[in-house]
Nucleic acid binder design. Structure first.
Lengths: 260, 260
DNA sequence: GATGGATATTTGGGATCCCAAATATTCTAA
DNA sequence: TTAGAATATTTGGGATCCCAAATATCCATC
């Protein structure tokens, strides 16, 4: 288990994302101490961390102010992440002898293939799909040869939907068991993009790898937009509930060790 | 003046960049307290900050270990930053009515024009050139409509050469007053790229804007490589000495307020 | 009643203290 | 002499205390 200040930062971040702590609200160290029954030392550390993440900012005089996260923020961050991944794909295509990462990518593609071919979408399968997706995307960041791409991606991965290889599912459709085929089709299309990216990298086709990754990254943005057309008052919490959370999420602690 | 922990983080970061604190060296809170005559509270805050930046990492058991920065790290980070700027250029070209930012860019281009036409490269002129360069690059980040691009750039801007609009000069040539024409030519070429980027954005030519920015960003990487061919043992300190430092550098505090 | 200044309270930054875990050292027994 | 246990020391995390700056409250004066 992490130290209190990390846990605290996670809790407060969650509260901000969920909207429990509203945008623009003022918070003081003392209140947080009170709420969470800890002393001011870990609270201070947690606040500094959140400040560096951009979740809160120092108020004019004293105190901190909640910055909050909007759906538009998520969209923007997804765009940044996607752009960084397209760089990673290009760089990896320009290198060679990344057998390790390539094998992982291939494995992930095959695994996702067999998963989508099962024609079902229960929790276990979704979790496995997510794992494959994480595997694929992480392998590119690891194999691109530029550690700062991964590091920089890690810097925004505390936001909802922005952890490495996050997947989005249409909760409503799945729970209602309708349009399962549609969701699976979408996953198959996504995996076909994975395969193309993999092939392009193997063949050293940097332009194609980058282009396909760019297209692939757009998928999530478009998906967010379909949510928005259906639900004009789409909240960040809604988005979170659409996102698959792995049990062992990449947290900021591991992120900081990207460079080994 | 900032609080002690910010200052302390800056000092320690500087020591790491300069190599005073060597890569792999172990540091303890107590020693830092001793060296800087402060209590452990600000030291802890500074260490956490540096840890988040990736400059240090927690050791296996106790203590922290210096990660250090290599020339290759800088090259990688420059690549990431350039890629993000190319995204910004594309996004800005796709928007319209960014009159404010466009004016600033145009102003910066004109200013750089007149500066390069003076045919001299003294300190004052270099400082003004740097200011124009910062103006140009900041305007794109501000005008692209995606706050996370700027925020993410800010996350790596504590590294040498990676503050917004950093410029690199061939110190040896300038101090020796030889090859001034060559340096000025390089600056003129750079500014012609600025002008093309500006024009492309005005015309809404996203592809051209992105492509030109990508090319423009490559310049610094290539310049680093010319340094390397000349000096096979190029150190990070060398690179720092080639970099123009504005008197009012964008520090981490302002970076955190990107989102306003 | 409004205004300005004096006083009280809140609040964040820094220092110090305590504690448990990790590490180093010493000592004992085979 | 050496392995291993017992002890001492170092070290980081957390709690608490102090202080100065910022803010709020109150009161006297006009």
């Amino acid at each position: 288990m992490s130290s209190i200040d990390i846990e605290l930062a996670n809790t407060i971040r969650q509260d901000i994302i969920e909207g429990t702590l509203e945008h623009g609200a003022r918070i003081t160290e003392a209140k947080l101490c009170d709420w969470h029954n800890v002393s001011r030392t870990p609270v201070r550390l947690a606040l500094r961390r959140l400040e560096q993440e951009g979740m809160i900012r120092k108020g004019d005089g004293r105190g901190y102010v909640i910055e909050g996260i909007s759906v538009d923020d998520i969209r923007q961050a997804v765009q940044v992440r996607g752009h960084l991944e397209s760089l990673a794909a290009r760089l990896m295509a320009q290198r060679d002898n990344q057998k390790d990462s390539l094998d992982k990518m291939n494995q992930a593609v095959l695994q996702m293939d067999s998963l989508t071919n099962m024609g079902r979408l229960d929790d276990a399968i979704i979790r496995e799909m997510h794992a494959s997706n994480v595997e694929f995307h992480s392998a590119i960041l690891d194999g691109c040869g530029n550690d700062y791409v991964k590091f920089t991606c890690g810097q925004i991965s505390h936001l909802p939907m922005l952890a490495a290889g996050s997947m989005v599912f249409d909760r409503d459709s799945i729970s209602g068991n309708k349009d399962i085929e549609k969701s699976i089709l979408r996953l198959k299309i996504g995996n076909s993009q994975h395969r193309i990216i993999y092939e392009a990298i193997v063949q050293g086709d940097a332009v194609r790898a980058e282009g396909m990754m760019r297209e692939h990254s757009n998928t999530m943005i478009e998906y967010i937009e379909t949510f928005e057309t259906r639900n004009t008052k789409l909240t960040v919490s809604d988005l979170v509930s659409y996102t698959v959370q792995s049990s062992q999420e990449m947290n900021s602690e591991t992120v900081e060790q990207v460079k080994q």
